[in-house]
Design a binder for these strands. Structure first.
Lengths: 335, 335
DNA sequence: TTGTAGGCGTTATCAC
DNA sequence: GTGATAACGCCTACAA
């Protein structure tokens, strides 16, 4: 494989000049540049980025850690990151964590191993390295997106889950529902706690009281939403709407409700959160809260680029707006 | 940042010994190893993989190019790749192409730039480099998964789309349907052509003839499936089943059918292909053809590991089996 | 079992 | 504008 030396030899210049022609074409004479160009074409030379990164002490790459990739939410989020990264000559690498901390740590190794410069985290977990950090150590090049927990001082971008959930609850209450069930996520997760709080807040604002026995728990998967809905129906209690903490569980709930011969929204209204791509094509179309996923990704990448996490001026938190999307899964309760 | 030299100094050994302690712990004396270990812990040393890769001329990483990540199919496919990669100490990096060739080429640069050793392709496109290759050039470290085209001599793993589609068609015909519509993908794509061929083959085997005016075209997205179904319904022709070339379009079709007050499968049976995660929770649950996605990923990674693409003995093609999954979207036509 | 030393392919400093 | 040359941090013959 041709290297910079071969190019230099063939073009009759020094390797320094070749390097300059590649990095700062403007400071080398046009004629020289042309000779170099020809040599590069002739030998089909490709710069060895490994060597370049080693020398420059930066890889111009970030790694994005996501728990899974089937979640459409992830998709447009990553899209946002790519948009900004591309404009700045940064490579984006996706690393799957499956929600496992050991895998996340393994991805972090790409940073300690200098193969990437930063980590954008769209995951519940935090890499172990955060706990290992002692005061005075250099700042960690990590940006947290969305799944935030308190007590970790890293830049982050997120939505206001509480207000978003309150908006959803307000929509349902505004339609006139009074007996409202909730399918919540795992309360170990900050996001789930916030959303549940938001549901309560939204109902309270509308003067609707909550029946604590109408709260079922899932784990944010379609399957768990189906099971939770089944439990609610089996309980024999009556309710006319279900607030679901995410769309996946809402889809599961709709499935179960329909399979029992009940109708959405005639018998039971369903609202989700996240506005997954499939939400629009559920039967019926799912009313939900849309998150500015692409914008979140863009912001996260910008925070990464501004990386100077020790600086007083560093932006520590960006909160982006959500939006209610009304489709056909919600309606006023039957008279 | 501490480097191997610092460790050597602190442990009172040479850098060679440190390197060996890291790579081949068994060939260094236990006592020495311990001293080195302590030094590593004390200085919080992390090997610079960039330098290691540069020296060893391999990155121990593969890049997986996928058009998007929201497709659940992609997800378990990547899972399969990771399974095998992990067991072999290989890092897996995901690169998004958005179906764009320029982005794919950019990912390929990671290979010419030595940041990755191979490329696994789950994309319609092919990197430009394939066309540039002249006979005698070293083989390209590329494995193709599923989206195959003829005329490219690279190892690949796929399913038999024709037989898979024939199976789907056979199921519908076997239920007694005679007037059957088709929602096909873009016929520019090999996979779409194969699946359409398979549908025809399956129907012919069952002695059912095809009405060419009952073929609508989409582009594999939910939206296009919805539009195609609408066109079919608007045409006024009668049919009792739709063969969809993938689940996404099937979901779109169901949505439109339901929104027009027709029922699946009572009025119209729907079958898809791919067995997306959401297929099970569609309303009604979608009958479909399951692909061995994880196995495809595993095989692809194995082909990558066996990389010696010039060798006569190199495996060039692996075909994996599909499976019919019967759910609630298909039934015998009304009498 | 361990040490010495050359080199992987760049970039960047300093001369000229 | 261009050329020598010293790093960047590691691996691996070869020698001891």
């Amino acid at each position: 494989m041709a290297n910079i030396k071969d190019i230099a030899a063939r073009a009759g210049v020094s390797i320094a000049t070749v390097s300059r022609a590649l990095r700062q074409p403007d400071i080398v004479k046009a004629k020289t540049a042309k000779k170099i160009e020809e040599a590069i074409a002739a030998l089909n030379y490709k710069p060895n980025m490994l060597a370049a990164s080693l020398r420059r002490q930066r890889a111009d790459a970030v790694i994005v850690a996501v728990p899974n990739i089937y979640n459409p939410f992830t998709s447009s989020f990553v899209q946002g990151i790519e948009n900004v990264a591309r404009d700045n000559g940064i490579k984006v690498l996706l690393g799957l964590t499956e929600g496992r901390r050991d895998l996340l740590d393994r991805h972090y190794e790409m940073i300690s191993g200098k193969q990437a410069d930063g980590l954008i985290l769209l995951d519940i977990n935090r890499p172990t390295v955060i706990e290992m950090r002692k005061p005075g150590d250099p700042p960690l090049p990590i940006v947290i997106a969305c799944e935030y927990e308190d007590g970790i001082d890293l830049p982050r971008v997120r939505i206001d889950d509480i207000e978003a959930a309150a908006t959803a609850a307000g929509h349902i209450a505004g339609l006139g529902h009074g007996k409202i069930a909730i399918i919540s996520g795992p309360t170990t997760q900050r996001m789930s706690r916030d959303r549940q709080r938001g549901f309560r807040l939204g109902l309270r604002r509308s003067g609707v009281s909550i029946d604590e026995t109408l709260i079922a728990h899932g784990d944010f998967t379609v399957e768990s939403g189906a099971h939770a809905a089944a439990r609610l129906l089996d309980s024999g209690k009556s309710f006319t709407a279900i607030l679901c903490e995410n769309d996946e569980m809402a889809v599961g709930a709709i499935h179960v409700i329909a399979s029992r011969g009940l109708r959405v929204p005639d018998d039971i209204s369903i609202i989700g959160m996240d506005n997954l791509r499939f939400a629009e094509f559920a039967n019926p179309g799912l009313t939900t809260i849309a998150l500015p996923t692409t914008a979140i990704g863009e912001q996260a990448m910008r925070l990464m680029l501004d990386f100077d996490f020790d600086a007083e001026s560093a932006t520590r938190e960006v909160i982006l707006p959500h939006e209610l999307i009304v489709r056909d899964s919600t309606a006023a309760p039957k008279a």
